[in-house]
Write a protein that binds this DNA or RNA. Structure first.
Lengths: 377, 377
DNA sequence: TTGTAGGCGTTATCAG
DNA sequence: CTGATAACGCCTACAA
């Protein structure tokens, strides 16, 4: 025991020195040499479920450890046609909503043995340049939380590159998709607000080309029409804090006064709207005006805001996207699937959510109703 | 002209069909066949600065486009020993500060031809598992915004893997580093607050093992001592919103009352502290209490907060980290360099930054001074 | 400027 | 269970 062990160690350190001298990398061949087996034996030792005897496995692993050997993923992927990398395309990383998505996605994917190669898109126009890189890097699949054109999606098909769209949809296109039902979310929000007696609605929308914002808006408009309420006034926004303030002012100007409720395309815009209303214009929220957002980002829950908003079940959605993508990768079949989740309503305290009640002993004829919100159990 | 062109196109579509039939990938060999040149000619066409005649280059590029050929990065990296990927290790992606870093880093790196392979660390303990992957994937270098042990760093050296630490330092270790001078930042903050007359300081620190928070705290403590002020009371925090509130309460309990100023290890904690003070405890900020944070994350600038804080020059720092790493990668020499940046003071409105002045006609004997802050030009 | 030939570090196939 | 041998797709001397 004390006689045979030194040999492998001595041999390893010696061999290691020669590797360093030649400035090469440590390869499976080096390990094989030290362990006294063939190179293919080494390879098998690193493949789970391969048939290797216990004793060789031990010798090989020891030699590998001694030499600091780690298999080269590039060489492996060349032959296995699998890089174990997934590209994640994401616009506007600065948006508070995406970091959470990224963290969650990465966690889920690494659980499935995949690593995330990040492709942030500063502008939509970058897509073309970025896609060229995506093809080069031989990723196993792509999760896109960015706007892709029909042509782009077609290229994915042509190259047989598995793709899952996250919170984006493409009309008349059969693509794997994980989304939140933003239409329903918009409808839900209007229903709640309308039930509480709001009639004059303003909407601060997202950018024109955003599917998500458009769906939310469409849901809201639809529901308002169903309820026989006047159509909302819509102003554009850029998803950022300043858009909230600018949107509020634009709405007031266009509507000739403060609306009953403002629906914002994102929490950050809602917060901007809220801050402007309270600190700049002196509007009482939710007394005079109700403000609601979307996404339930962390700040929406802070005491200063306690925003009325809708939360997407992000962890579930990320999990769905990751597992869906991996299923496509493994099956090699391009079964198309759409997983749609529902948003969860967060009451918060920036919207009046219960009908105004009239004090029973006072006159009840006033059409506009009293201005004091009353909590109802 | 109309006679020779069809051939290459016809040949391409034909060949493409046969590739599809065999379910193989398009390789440079296919392109060579269609273009009627050797495989090495194709290779050269995709290498900038190689010597190829204009006509072959055109023919090759046309064939490549027809076949949707894109070079395989895995195969290339096998021989060039360069993957053009950089690993970014980052803890706590949920922290508001990191997304900005990630976006900026990724931008800078892609400008230098590198892509980001993301390794988020949920817990510090994950480092070992994650590093194994880092070695496998043959990244060209690593930027670590995560805590690494001396042993870890040693392993980087052993494997000759270029490494740049971002906002972390290692005592007695010569590693490439890009940091902000957090010590100076802590000192600066205390100087400004002390000049305005604050005497009783509380600190809500970051986690024990965070270099950044420790440096900030050390700077503050040091400067207080220099100024002959009493040492601050320090309570721990976890960098999140709730830590701010908990920290505030702990400080009040330990100090037997509200301190003059509280320095928080991060903006989010400062915001938590602020919200708790104002909305829960009814403390007037900055009338009764000054609150300051670090990092100048986006919400710190919102109207509800307008936080007094210190901004790190993130774009510059990201740029420095990216270019430093690439320099190391290209030079193959392990020149050690440390680039240190200064934080910028953001006045905000949550700290009283000017000495209390006494109204000249009133009694001036009161040792405690009036409670009304007075702005000084 | 162009083609030939060898190698990068694995995995996969198939005898033994 | 083990070892030779052929890919995988590309880059790069070297020779023409």
């Amino acid at each position: 025991m004390t006689k045979s062990k030194p040999t492998i160690e001595v041999c390893a350190t010696e061999h290691k020195a020669s590797i360093a001298r030649e400035a090469r990398r440590v390869t499976s061949y080096d390990v094989a040499l030290v362990a006294g087996v063939s190179q293919s034996a080494v390879s098998r030792c690193f493949k789970p479920g391969a048939s290797v005897s216990k004793s060789t496995h031990a010798r090989v692993m020891k030699a590998a450890a001694l030499l600091d050997y780690i298999p080269n993923a590039a060489a492996r992927s060349l032959i296995t046609r699998r890089s174990n990398m997934v590209a994640v395309l994401v616009t506007n990383l600065a948006n508070l909503y995406y970091p959470e998505l990224l963290a969650e996605l990465s966690k889920q994917l690494s659980g499935l043995g995949k690593r995330v190669l990040l492709f942030p898109l500063a502008r939509e126009a970058d897509v073309d340049r970025v896609l060229a890189d995506v093809w080069q890097f031989q990723v196993d699949g792509v999760i896109a939380a960015a706007r892709l054109s029909a042509e782009h999606v077609a290229e994915f098909e042509r190259r047989r590159m598995p793709l899952v769209l996250f919170n984006r949809t493409l009309r008349d296109q059969s693509v794997n998709t994980v989304t939140c039902d933003h239409l329903e979310a918009g409808r839900m929000l209007v229903s709640r607000l309308a039930a509480a007696g709001h009639r004059r609605f303003g909407i601060i929308a997202g950018t024109e080309d955003s599917t998500v914002a458009n769906e939310r808006r469409r849901g809201a408009v639809e529901r308002l029409a169903e309820l026989g309420l006047p159509p909302p006034v819509v102003v554009p926004g850029e998803y950022d804090y300043n858009s909230g303030a600018a949107g509020l002012k634009a709405l007031i100007a266009q509507m000739g006064g403060v609306p009953d409720a403002i629906i914002c395309g994102s929490d950050v815009m809602a917060i901007g709207c809220l801050d402007c209303a309270r600190h700049e214009l002196g509007i009482d929220v939710p007394g005079q005006l109700s403000v609601a957002g979307f996404d339930a980002v962390e700040p929406s829950n802070w005491l200063s805001y306690n925003l009325t908003t809708l939360r997407q079940p992000m962890p579930k959605m990320a999990c769905a996207a990751a597992s869906l993508l991996c299923a496509v990768i493994d099956s090699h079949e391009s079964q198309v699937e759409r997983r749609v989740f529902s948003a969860q309503f967060i009451e918060g305290a920036t919207a009046r959510l219960h009908p105004l009640t009239h004090a029973p002993t006072l006159e009840t004829a006033s059409a506009t109703g009293p201005r004091v919100p009353v909590a109802i159990m």
